[in-house]
Amino acid sequence: MGTEDLTQILLQHPFIQGLGEDHLKTLIGCAKNVRFQEGEYVIREGEAASKFFLIRTGRVALEVEVSGHGGLRIQTSGPGEVLGWSWLIAPYRWHYSGVAVADTRAISLDGECLRKKCEADSSFGYEMLKRLAEVMERRVEATRMQLIDMYGLTTTGGHK
């Protein structure tokens, strides 16, 4: 796939929207179009976090191995969402596994390549950090809501 095609695909992803032309050029050098079949692991717990993914279609579930319970799925990322930020934070290891629960297309971004570019160009680095911070904030909010276990709160049937 040519750089132009990849640029068009990238531009459709919400994570990229509003990114300046120069920064987009910087990013594209680290990007690759990828596909995963249902059941295929996209990332694996404990392995080096060398990439992150902009999901285009399909769905990836974050999974954590709980002894005696097998793989517990705690969150999914779908179209328009971002999978993984451990590539940015030392020691650059995945804390969860990610398994495609549907055939999935994504843009894979090389973490090491991006880290170097972020270090070399602080304006690009800040832009990446801002966008990832937004992703993290949304994830933390969602996780807090899940922690509340709101459906376990006692209600009877619309009224009580």
Partner: peptide
């Protein structure tokens, strides 16, 4: 449809219901 947690047989969405709006 989304759930707060799933096992390996669940292939649907996992997360809060507000998250579905982004799709």
């Amino acid at each position: 449809v989304t759930v707060d947690r799933g096992d390996s047989s669940w292939k649907g969405h996992i997360g809060v219901v507000t998250g579905l709006l982004s799709y």
